[in-house]
Structure formats: structure tokens, C-alpha cells
Simulated scan of single mutants.
Amino acid sequence: MTIGHVNGQLYYFEPTSVDAFPGISTGAVLRCVYKNRRWIVSRTDNMPNWYVAADGMKAQKLSSTVDEALKYVGPFNAPQQWKRAKEDRYDPYTPAVR
């Protein structure tokens, strides 16, 4: 799979070739681990309600990404997840710091 940029925070995944990706049968599960870099620095920077669309197909939401709870996003509990570069001094606020 490759990833392409549409606009703003809108991206798409695309098979590298039809031969490499024959499709997903009804009821089958395709596991895709997506690791974003640089500009997502908190769990809430991830957008919910991802969907799949193709020519001749009605768009379908990915059930694992539905709702605002962001259950599909892992915890942000390590500095390498929120620091974009070695010069970045940002650290998430704790209740005590706020």
C-alpha cells in the first residue's frame, strides 16, 4: 500500500498494484498498522470515521475508527510520540502544570 495526500489532514491509502492487492472479501479482516510522523503530536490529532471507497462502491466507514473515542489510537505516553524534532521542547501539560 502507498499513502497519498488530498488536502489538509485528508489522506488516502492505495494499492501499489492490482496484482499485489486482489481485494478484501466480505467479512474478511485486513489489518493495517499506520504510524504517522511529525505533525500528529497527541491522540486527538487523529481523525475519526475513516472510510473505504472505490469506483462502483458505496463508501463504508471502517468500524474500528467509528466514534469520537479514538479507541483505535494507541496511548501517547513516550516523548518520541509528541516530539517532532530534537529541538522540540514541547511536553504535554499535566494537571499539576496547568
Rank of each mutant, 00 (worst) to 15 (best):
A69L: 03
P79D: 00
D67Q: 02
E87C: 12
K58N: 14
Q80F: 15
R31W: 07
D88A: 08
R38H: 14
L70G: 02
Q81L: 07
G74Q: 01
G4E: 04
E68P: 03
Q9K: 12
P48R: 05
V6S: 12
R37M: 02
Y12E: 09
L10N: 13
F21N: 09
M57H: 11
I24E: 09
N46I: 04
T65M: 01
M47A: 02
G8V: 07
G27K: 05
D88G: 04
E87N: 15
E87F: 13
R84P: 06
A53R: 13
F13Q: 07
F21L: 09
Y90E: 09
Y90W: 08
Q60P: 08
N7K: 14
A69W: 04
L30E: 02
V52N: 08
S63R: 13
V52K: 01
R38Y: 15
V41W: 08
T44W: 14
P15E: 05
Y51I: 03
S42C: 07
C32M: 15
V29C: 09
N49A: 11
D88T: 05
Q80H: 15
Y72E: 06
P48V: 01
E87A: 13
L30V: 05
A69G: 01
L70S: 01
A69E: 02
W82Y: 13
H5M: 07
Y34A: 12
S42P: 09
P75R: 07
D67V: 01
T65I: 03
H5K: 06
A78R: 09
W82I: 00
K83Y: 02
V18S: 13
M47T: 01
R84I: 13
Q9W: 12
K61A: 14
V41F: 03
S64C: 14
S17N: 00
S17P: 02
M47C: 06
M57Q: 09
N46Q: 09
F21P: 07
L30M: 10
D91L: 09
F21Q: 06
R43N: 08
M47K: 04
E68W: 01
G74I: 04
S25V: 11
L62Y: 05
K71W: 05
D45Y: 01
F13T: 05
Y51V: 04
R37G: 05
E14G: 11
G4L: 06
K71Q: 12
V41D: 02
N36H: 11
L70Y: 02
A78F: 02
P75F: 04
G74V: 01
K58T: 15
Q80M: 12
S25T: 11
K35L: 05
R84Q: 13
R84N: 13
E14W: 11
D88V: 03
A85V: 10
P22V: 14
S64V: 08
R38I: 15
R84V: 14
Y11N: 06
